[in-house]
Amino acid sequence: MQSPSRVSVIDDDESVRVASSSLLRSLGWEVSLYPSAESFFDADSLDGLACVITDLNMPGMSGLQLQQRLRAVKPDLPVMFITAFASDAARRQAIDGGAVCFLGKPVDGTAVADCLERIRASFLKD
């Protein structure tokens, strides 16, 4: 079985979405971009999705609320947080909720690549 190759990026900052898309495409991933968690749930299919990368603080549904909703419908889908508000409490809540990575902005592209490689490796061992 081939591992999923699509990543959805959810961030209310367009410049972050564009930069994330460029990085992910350069790493060989297909990318879908959304300005909010609500737009992601309205438009995206979770089938074939390898990972969700989300901001923590967004208007409407927060990244942590997004994570909780994803856990209810697709508990094995990896979630990665990239945020400018990397408090210890938020990090703990995200990791306790199953996040595979919790990275601060400005994000290090190598850290994103490493996290995605761990996700890809977990698909290959299943």
Rank of each mutant, 00 (worst) to 15 (best):
Arg91Trp: 07
Pro59Glu: 04
Gly97Asp: 02
Gln93Ile: 01
Ala111Leu: 14
Pro75Tyr: 01
Asp55Lys: 07
Pro106Tyr: 00
Leu23His: 10
Leu116Ala: 12
Leu56Cys: 02
Asp126Ile: 07
Leu24Trp: 11
Asp88Arg: 12
Ser20Gln: 14
Ile95Pro: 04
Leu70Lys: 03
Ala37Gln: 05
Glu14Ala: 11
Asn57Glu: 07
Pro78Ala: 03
Gln93Ser: 10
Gly28Thr: 12
Glu38Gly: 13
Ser87His: 01
Pro35Gln: 06
Ala89Trp: 01
Pro75Val: 01
Arg17Asp: 03
Ser39Glu: 15
Ala86Gln: 05
Phe85Ala: 09
Asp76Cys: 00
Leu49Phe: 03
Gln68Leu: 11
Ala72Asp: 11
Phe81Pro: 09
Val112Gly: 09
Pro35Ser: 09
Arg120Tyr: 03
Arg118Ile: 01
Asp88Asn: 11
Ala121Lys: 11
Asp76Trp: 03
Gln2Met: 14
Val79Tyr: 11
Lys125Pro: 00
Ile53Trp: 08
Val100Arg: 15
Pro106Gln: 05
Val7Gln: 07
Asn57Lys: 10
Leu124Cys: 11
Asn57Phe: 02
Ala89Lys: 12
Leu46Asp: 06
Ala89Tyr: 06
Asn57Leu: 11
Gln2Asp: 14
Ala99Leu: 09
Gln93Thr: 09
Lys105Ala: 04
Arg91Thr: 10
Val73Glu: 09
Ile53Met: 14
Asp55Arg: 04
Lys74Tyr: 01
Gly97Thr: 03
Val79Trp: 12
Glu30Met: 11
Gly109Asp: 13
Val9Ile: 15
Ser5Asp: 13
Asp114Tyr: 01
Cys115Trp: 06
Gly28Trp: 11
Phe41Thr: 09
Ile119Phe: 02
Asp108Leu: 08
Ser3Trp: 00
Cys115Gly: 15
Asp126Glu: 14
Arg120Asn: 10
Arg92Ala: 10
Phe40Ile: 04
Cys101Gln: 14
Arg25Glu: 15
Val100Leu: 13
Val18Tyr: 07
Pro75Thr: 04
Pro4Asp: 04
Ala37Trp: 07
Pro4Tyr: 02
Val112Ile: 15
Glu117Asp: 14
Arg118Trp: 02
Gln2Arg: 13
Asp76Tyr: 01
Lys74Ile: 00
Leu66Val: 06
Cys101Thr: 08
Leu64His: 06
Ile53Gly: 03
Gly63Met: 05
Gly63Ile: 03
Ala113Asn: 13
Phe85Ile: 02
Ala19Ile: 04
Gln2Thr: 14
Leu116Arg: 10
Ser26His: 12
Val18His: 04
Leu23Arg: 09
Ala121Glu: 12
Ser3Glu: 15
Ser3Ala: 15
Ser5Arg: 15
Leu103Val: 13
Asp42Asn: 13
Thr110Lys: 14
Val31Gly: 06
Pro106Trp: 00
Val16Ala: 08
Ser22Val: 09
Cys115Thr: 12
Arg91Asp: 00
Cys115Met: 08
Gly60Trp: 04
Gln93Lys: 11
Ser39Leu: 12
Leu77Asp: 02
Leu77His: 01
